[in-house]
Every structure is written in C-alpha cells, then in structure tokens.
Simulated scan of single mutants.
Amino acid sequence: MKINVVKDSGVFAEYMGRYKSQVDLMSQHHRKVFAIPLTIQFMRKKHAQCKDYEKYHNMIRSGDNSLLSEAMRDFSKYLKGQYGRDVNAALVASNKPSRSRPTQIRRLGYCWAREQKDGDEYPHYHIWLLLDGSQVKSPFDVVKWLNDRAKAFNLALFYAKGAKRIDRKDPSLYWSLLHHISYLAKESSKDKELVKKGSNRYGASKLRPPNDIEWKGFTYESVRKQIQKQGRFFITQELENDVYRSEEALLEDIRSSIPNWSPPSVITT
C-alpha cells in the first residue's frame, strides 16, 4: 500500500502492522467502523480543570507515555459509560429530540504515535480513535466531550479533521483509512533522544478478536469486483494517481514496485 508520509521520510513497518491489526479487529467486531483523527498535547499553563498539575507535569516530562495511558483509560471508560447519557442530556437541554436509544459504545480501538520536534518543550501525540460506526456517525460530539475530559489531565485535544467511516463491503474505504493512518508511522519527528529508555514512540489498543469471526479481510477478488461494479478502486480520492479505473492500471502500478507480482488470495500490506 502507498504510505502517507512527508518527503524524504521513511516509515516504521512495525508501527503499520500494529495499526492495521487494530483496524482489522474493529472490522471483525463491527460491520462499520468510524475513525476519528486527533492531536493531543500538554498545555504550557495549568488549566483550571486540572486538579493535579504537578503530577501530570512530571509524567509528561518523564520521557515515557504514562500520562497518555492514564488519559486513554479515562476516555475509554467514559465513552463506554457516561458518554451516551451526556449526549442525550445535551440534546434535551437544547430543545432537540433525544435519541430513543442512547449511543452505546462497547469498545474503543485506537492507534497513536508520539512526536517531539527539536526545540519543543513537550511531546505531542497523533491518535486515531476507532469506534462502532453504527453508533457514532459524526466526530463532533466525541471530540467535544473528550476535550472537556482532557483538560483534567492538562491536555489540549484537537480534531485533526478527516474522520473516516469504513464498511466491510467497500475495500476502497478500508485502504483509504490505512493510507491516512500511515502518517503516524513516518520516521520524521519521532523523538529518538527524548523518549525514556524502554518506552515506545507508538502504541495501539489491545483488542481481542470476536468469538465468531465473520470478516477475515479483503481478497483481491473483492477489489476486482469493485472496479467492475463502480468503475474504480481508490486508495485516496485526494490524489488522482491513487484512483485506479481498471484492474490493469492497478496491476501495472503494483508491478512497477514489485516485478512479476501476481494477485494473492488475500491482500496484505
């Protein structure tokens, strides 16, 4: 697959393997997956909602990722519990009809990468949240409520734009999401010197597969059928050279990098 990295930057293959596994596991649990890109950084000044600034300041300066881990545990617990009730209460307060069934999130998948450029006082994190696409259809409520909770850790949470909704039936949407997530795996801006020895510069959730696995990945045949039915297969719609309007064009591009390549039964990265 094509990688979404800046010019002259390599990519960490181990990162992408971990990220892809979480997307695949979420897709095994849910027919549709909603992915939200975020950026999180430690605020220079103490926020009024942060009651334990010294603790969190020491954590972010420690060189490990303990602060992010603590925040992600809080986010996960909140999304699986109070979040749906808060969304409904906000609808009622604004005189909008509440949902007959409050949003219910059963699991949270995520991928993250830590970066710190020369001269930056603190690291920042790029994160993709992976949620049940039948329950979450817009990023804005999730970002709004998580940003409020992030302040308790003296963290600022930003929506990076470009949320993606993928479906087991559409291989283009799946590969487009992996293309965008691959930005986290770029080698540039990774703080090799500032990270604590033994700590990671990337990470992901630890989802487990369902008991009954209905979806096992996209086969080459599924891509061929999409081209025949829709007239195209894309990795990212933003770049015309990543839109394939025939199977021959896709094969030609693949073989330009891998001579004599032949279609496998299941596409891999």
Rank of each mutant, 00 (worst) to 15 (best):
K2C: 12
N4W: 06
N4A: 07
V6E: 13
K7Y: 10
K7W: 06
V11W: 01
F12Q: 03
A13T: 10
M16N: 10
R18C: 02
R18K: 11
Y19V: 09
K20H: 13
S27R: 07
S27L: 07
Q28F: 00
H29N: 13
H29A: 09
I36Y: 01
P37W: 02
T39I: 10
T39E: 10
Q41H: 13
F42N: 00
F42H: 01
F42G: 00
K46V: 10
K46P: 14
Q49H: 14
K51T: 14
H57T: 09
N58E: 14
M59A: 12
I60H: 00
D64C: 13
S66H: 07
L67W: 02
L68V: 11
L68C: 05
S69P: 00
E70Q: 13
E70R: 12
A71T: 07
A71S: 06
Y78G: 04
G81L: 07
G84T: 10
R85S: 10
V87A: 09
V87N: 05
N88Q: 09
A89H: 09
L91I: 10
L91Q: 02
V92R: 12
V92G: 03
A93C: 12
S94Q: 09
P97L: 07
R107I: 03
Y110K: 00
W112T: 02
R114L: 06
Q116S: 03
K117S: 15
G119Y: 10
E121W: 11
P123V: 03
H126K: 05
L129E: 00
L130I: 05
D132M: 09
G133A: 13
G133E: 02
S134C: 14
V136I: 15
S138N: 13
D141N: 15
V142P: 01
V142K: 00
V143E: 04
W145H: 15
L146V: 07
N154S: 08
F158N: 12
A160M: 05
G162Y: 10
G162H: 04
R168I: 01
D170N: 13
D170I: 13
P171R: 01
S172A: 13
S172F: 01
L173C: 02
Y174C: 04
W175I: 06
L177V: 06
L177E: 01
L178I: 07
L178M: 08
H179N: 13
S182C: 12
S182F: 04
Y183I: 04
K186N: 02
K186G: 01
K186D: 01
E187K: 07
S189C: 11
S189F: 05
K190Q: 05
D191Q: 06
E193K: 15
L194T: 11
L194I: 12
K196W: 09
K196D: 04
K196G: 06
K197V: 14
S199H: 03
R201L: 15
Y202F: 15
Y202D: 05
G203C: 04
S205L: 05
P209V: 10
P210G: 08
E214K: 15
W215P: 03
G217D: 05
F218I: 03
F218M: 00
T219F: 00
S222T: 13
S222F: 03
V223G: 02
R224M: 07
F233V: 01
F234G: 06
Q237D: 10
D242V: 08
D242I: 08
S246C: 09
E247C: 08
L250K: 08
L251E: 09
L251Q: 05
E252N: 14
D253C: 12
I254C: 12
I258E: 13
N260A: 14
N260F: 11
N260T: 15
P263Y: 02
